[in-house]
Structure formats: C-alpha cells, structure tokens
C-alpha cells in the first residue's frame, strides 16, 4: 500500500542529523518577531522570547515523500527546553534530525506524525535549547 511505503521511507531517515545551519540573533529580527506576536515587553529587544528559536533556524526539514500522504500539513505541537538565555549578537547553530515517524487513526481518518528534534548551540559551543516538534500530515 502506498501509505505504508511513505512511512517505510520516512523511517529510514530516523536519527540522521541534517547538516547544521547557523544564524546570528539580530536586534531587528527580534523586534519584528516580538511585534508579530504583539508582545511589547522591552526585554525582547535584547533577549530572545520563548519561541524565537524557530524563527532563527528551521526546526524541521522538507520531507517530500511525506507529501504523498494526505492533503496538507498541521503543526501538532512543540516542546522547548531552555538551558541558557539567547541574546542579541549570539551566533546559534541548529542541528535537526527526524526523531520518529508513525501513523495514528482518529475520527478524521489516518494521520501521519513526524517528530523532529533540534539542538541549538551558541558561539561558545554550549547548548542553549532543545526543541521537539510534531508535524502532521492529514
């Protein structure tokens, strides 16, 4: 069945790190991000608000084979773990891997779940955060 083969092909990717990407935390970007959320706290002119890391580096990657399943993507959830603050000028390196892939049946049919895990390090090589995200095909 086509559905099974999508899952089989995704499973091959489990645990494989993507090449790391790096980005610098820019004051203008932080400001635009906080404005987009509508959070006026002046703290975010200097420091990254809780969800900012997703704007700095992709926390998932394109898996074309998954798009053979269902009609569209939904975000199922996100879990952030914070180890050190992220501030303007920090250079953050993100490494993402596909951590798991599975199917689940619900009231609206079968859904495909893909779990991504991303680790963020700063310019000193210290881990600043971890992120787990659930992408759903429906």
């Amino acid at each position: 069945m086509a559905v099974a083969s999508v899952l089989e092909r995704l499973k091959v990717r489990i645990g494989v790190d993507r090449p790391a990407t790096s980005a610098t935390v820019e004051a203008g970007h932080l400001k635009r991000f906080a404005e987009a959320i509508g959070d006026p706290n002046p703290r975010w002119l200097e420091e990254a608000p809780p969800t900012f890391l997703v704007a700095l580096a992709p926390a998932s990657y394109h898996v074309p084979e998954a798009e053979e399943f269902g009609k569209g993507w939904l975000n199922g959830g996100n879990r952030f773990e914070y180890l050190e603050p992220v501030r303007v000028g920090d250079e953050i390196t993100a490494t993402t891997k596909l951590a798991d892939a599975y199917e689940k049946s619900g009231s609206s049919g079968t859904l495909l779940f893909i779990i991504f895990e991303t680790e963020f390090k700063n310019q000193h090589g210290r881990r600043v955060a971890r992120l787990r995200g659930t992408a759903i095909r429906r």
Partner: peptide, 16 residues
C-alpha cells in the same frame, strides 16, 4: 493561525 503564533501568545502569558 500558526500553531507557533499561539505558542508565542502562551509564551507571553507565562513571561508576563
């Protein structure tokens, strides 16, 4: 709405 926009709102709830 983006899920992560709603997460941003809830993040603001907590940090406020």
């Amino acid at each position: 709405l983006h899920g992560l926009l709603k997460a941003g709102f809830l993040g603001q709830l907590v940090t406020d």
